[in-house]
Design a protein around this nucleic acid. Structure first.
Lengths: 339, 339
DNA sequence: GTGAAAGCGCTAACAA
DNA sequence: TTGTTAGCGCTTTCAC
């Protein structure tokens, strides 16, 4: 039982393959009767056009590639859901790739996407990426690329991110207003723009409120709970006694949460804790985690819209749009000292 | 700056495309000197074969498709990591699809995989899937399929799962030995085999220990924390006072964990709780969650090995292998009443 | 209104 | 050792 091709239909009906092709695409220059017969037989034989042949012919695939560092991060999973939401509606299929925060893997993924004639790609950078040549080359050939969340400043294309500075500022300000005097920050990897921007928001808030910045209590961790747990243990074991922690992401905050509990300290009484992202799990922790909400689903939607627009109107890449989404403070028990 | 093709090389060198093709594949019937020249020019022009053309020609792609219900579930993320581990080593690329536990999406994904000439697929069923015709048709055409975790009994192909019955039995037995008298079970969707098997393990343990089975405290939830939270609230608000809960998955257990905390009850004193999977987050909860460890990464490796074997030796599908991996009890504070 | 032929990039008989 | 031809499944001129 082989797949039906246009040829099978042509042979059966004693017409040429081009006639079948035209009938199927409802070309106006085809006799109504012929068209009917073709359409019927196609349905009966369960004919579907071969996407691979179409790709070879037309150099596109109706697929868009998405590269994220790690699919198990619920933040990215939500962004992808947003991407799928608009992509499916427009007839595109979404193919997911993970870089595992590894530069080589990212390069492989990019190559795969370009080789398979994907129509475009959406990218959130790997932590390990310092060199952007693999994107630059494609971008210069006119290949549609949109960055989201972990964006790349060096390539002039559409981007979607949140206002990391503002979110971080609000989170820090919130801790200050709750009466925290010694606020630590656990930052993400410094080569990521989002880490630097959130760190910057933290510093600015302290500055504005005339709280001295202590470099000793500004740590850095990968964006995962396991390493954050270790880093926070180190922080708590240090000489400076902190009464507040702003974590650069919820995954980091979850590690800190565990470290604080483990140390026999209570939240928010001993230490007030706040994260960044508003992952679904945060509200289920004990005590529930305060955080800065990011519109992840919306970010995916916006990125996909920009990309599809770029695919359909290639000239539009003259002007690069940077869509910066708003964050929102979500206060829960882990930081609520003053009702 | 277009992509280099085999033609460009042929023209440049005044040879035919087939010569180039052969030289590139290091055919022995090609002059050493010609081979040299071709290889050099190819490198200089940065030639890479077009996978789409190869696919059209050979009906395969060196890609394998993986369909999981939900990529944000760390269990599936880990399985995928295992799959990627062996697939990459064997030169296959892994393309990830999500069904979102939706039957129609699963069908779409299957169709995409088959149409794009993927070499095979690995599947963990969607909750919503009751009909397996989309798999059956492909399977009968000899398309390589391997099921993992949420396997399908009705199709005779390789499968990888864990011993759900045994794991559930051990978890329940553990609660009994900790002194629990009234043990509830929050099961997964009943149409999934894993849910039924874990439920069966639970029932058997109670039976063996002569503890009456109360249908009122056997609930059912989707495999996510949000619904589990609601279901557990209902359980705790019911007329039967329970002192132990075996949750059919960690995601369910996380919801129960939050509900128990919210109700002002303590773990394990008031209620001992145990989940299933050993997701990384479970050790970071407060108190840390007991669970049944599943070798997720290993499951992915095994499934990928079976699939690749099936791809390379199509006749091997005469005998279907069911690889059942062992589980292990992981006791943490949430269920540890007796030291 | 319909067919023949060329071609997307590549490989594999079959010739030479 | 190398070239010619055909073909994977499809669309699209260009003829008729």
């Amino acid at each position: 039982m082989k797949k039906t091709t246009i040829k099978d239909i042509a042979r059966e009906l004693n017409v040429s393959t081009s006639t079948v092709s035209r009938a199927l695409r409802d070309s106006f220059e085809i006799g109504a009767e012929t068209k009917q017969r073709v359409l019927e037989l196609a349905k009966r034989l369960d004919y579907t056009p071969d996407p691979v042949a179409l790709s070879l012919l037309s150099s596109h695939s109706n697929d868009i590639g998405v590269i994220v560092p790690d699919i198990s991060n619920p933040f990215f999973a939500l962004v992808i859901a947003g991407i799928e939401d608009v992509a499916f509606a427009q007839g595109y299929h979404v193919v997911i790739y993970q870089s595992h925060d590894n530069y080589e893997r990212e390069v492989m993924n990019v190559r795969h996407i370009a080789n398979r004639r994907k129509d475009g790609m959406l990218v959130s950078l790997a932590t390990g990426t310092q060199d952007y040549a693999h994107f630059k080359a494609l971008h210069e050939q006119g290949f549609p690329i949109v960055f989201f969340d972990r964006i790349c400043d060096e390539i002039d294309t559409h981007k979607v991110s949140v206002d990391d500075f503002e979110g971080a500022y609000q989170a820090t300000e919130h801790l200050i207003k709750q009466g925290c005097k010694t606020i630590a920050h656990i930052s993400g990897p410094p080569n990521l723009l989002i880490s630097r921007r959130r760190l910057h928001g933290y510093r600015s808030a302290l500055l504005d409120y005339k709280i001295p910045i202590m470099e000793d209590i500004i740590m850095s961790s990968e964006y995962n709970s396991q390493e954050a747990l270790i880093i926070t243990r180190r922080l708590l074991g240090g000489s400076v006694k902190v009464d507040g922690i702003f974590a650069s992401s919820d995954n980091i905050a979850i590690g800190s949460h565990a470290a604080i509990t483990e140390a026999g300290l209570s939240m928010p009484h001993d230490i007030a804790l706040i994260g960044f992202s508003d992952l679904p799990i945060t509200s289920l922790l004990n005590p529930p985690l305060s955080t800065v909400a990011q519109p992840a689903f919306e970010m995916g939607r916006s990125a996909a819209e920009l990309l599809i627009n770029l695919i359909k109107n290639p000239k539009d890449d003259r002007v690069s749009i940077s869509n910066v989404l708003r964050t929102g403070l979500v206060v829960r028990e882990s930081s609520l000292k003053i009702q």
